[in-house]
């Protein structure tokens, strides 16, 4: 008796010590990770001009960097930030929806279904993403031109979603671990494969859906090279990333760096909100009990 009690007591205090250590490590890591973001945030409140300053906290605190992005006509004429934000939000939402759908479809097909050319497709999927592709920008632009949708946001959505088909790796690995006995039980009950997909597999894949949705949502907020090329000079149609980069060339950097920082901070907001919302789906149920007994 006393032995197990002592053992249990020892175990509990060991665990507590471990937890304290973990808390310390997590805190230190968080500080390191957040520091650049914190620096960015501070810069966005800075009133003085300039890009690099040797201090972290602003001498003059101001909100104007945020407000000027939206209602200073000098700025919005050449840098319509509000429009960019809206554009990116629309593109992100649609490409997130389509991409997640595509990734799930492809991963399920490769994981669960067996068909003749499956191995070939798997190998192709691995290497197709590897081609160093700057030529593809000109090609993509001309393809869109052939359909008369060059320079539109819809074309952007299509392009971002097109690459999603190659991003099935993680989801497929995940599906591979979901017990096949679930499938078999359902098939005995007369379900078609598509019904298995919608009714059984999808509900079990919440963490992976969240991960895929999040990463495909983030994508359009961060791509600037392709958008700058694709949208040519149509500033109104830029997304946030391409637009913000315009604020950092040699002539504008001195005056507009702080606005750039403010704009960048604003970008982080929708993404964080999305993640917070999806957190509860993230902590998914567990498959364990479904087939037991």
């Amino acid at each position: 008796m006393t032995n197990t009690n002592a053992a249990q007591g020892g175990y509990a205090s060991k665990r507590k010590a471990a937890n304290v250590a973990v808390y310390i490590i997590l805190s230190v890591m968080s500080v390191i990770w957040i520091f650049p973001i914190f620096w960015l945030l501070m810069q966005s409140f800075r009133g003085e001009k300039g890009a690099i300053v040797p201090y972290v906290f602003p001498k003059q605190w101001t909100f104007s960097n945020y407000t000027r992005l939206f209602n200073d006509p000098d700025i919005t004429e050449a840098f319509p930030y509000g429009k960019w934000f809206l554009n990116t939000l629309i593109v992100a939402i649609f490409s997130c929806l389509i991409s997640t759908f595509i990734v799930l479809m492809v991963s399920y097909a490769f994981s669960r279904l067996r068909f003749k050319s499956r191995k070939t497709f798997l190998n192709l999927g691995l290497i197709l993403g590897m081609f160093p592709g700057f030529m593809s920008m000109a090609a993509t632009y001309n393809i869109m031109k052939a359909f008369h949708i060059e320079g539109t946001l819809g074309a952007l959505v299509i392009v971002y979603s097109a690459g999603a088909g190659l991003g099935y790796q993680v989801a497929k690995g995940y599906f591979d671990t979901v017990s096949r006995s679930l499938d078999e039980a359902a098939m005995i009950d007369g379900a078609t494969r598509s019904q298995i997909f919608y009714k059984i597999i999808l509900p079990l894949s919440k963490p992976i859906i969240v991960y895929t949705a999040l990463t495909t949502f983030i994508g359009p907020w961060t791509d600037y090279i392709f958008v700058s090329y694709f949208m040519l000079d149509d500033k109104e149609n830029y997304t946030v990333a391409a637009g913000l980069v315009q604020l950092t060339n040699a002539t504008t950097m001195y005056d507009y760096f702080t606005l750039f920082c403010a704009g960048a901070v604003l970008v982080a907001i929708p993404i964080t909100i999305l993640f917070v919302i999806m957190q509860k789906f993230y902590v998914a149920g567990v498959t364990g009990g479904a087939v037991k007994g």
């Binding site: 993403g129 160093p132 592709g133 700057f134 593809s136 920008m137 993509t140 971002y160 690459g163 999603a164 190659l166 991003g167 990463t215 495909t216 994508g219 961060t222 791509d223 600037y224 090279i225 392709f226 700058s228 090329y229 980069v245 315009q246 950092t248 060339n249 950097m253």
Partner: peptide
Amino acid sequence: VSKRKRALALVLTGM
């Protein structure tokens, strides 16, 4: 690495 990033440019906007 973002798997989505694929297109690389002739537009040099790098700071």
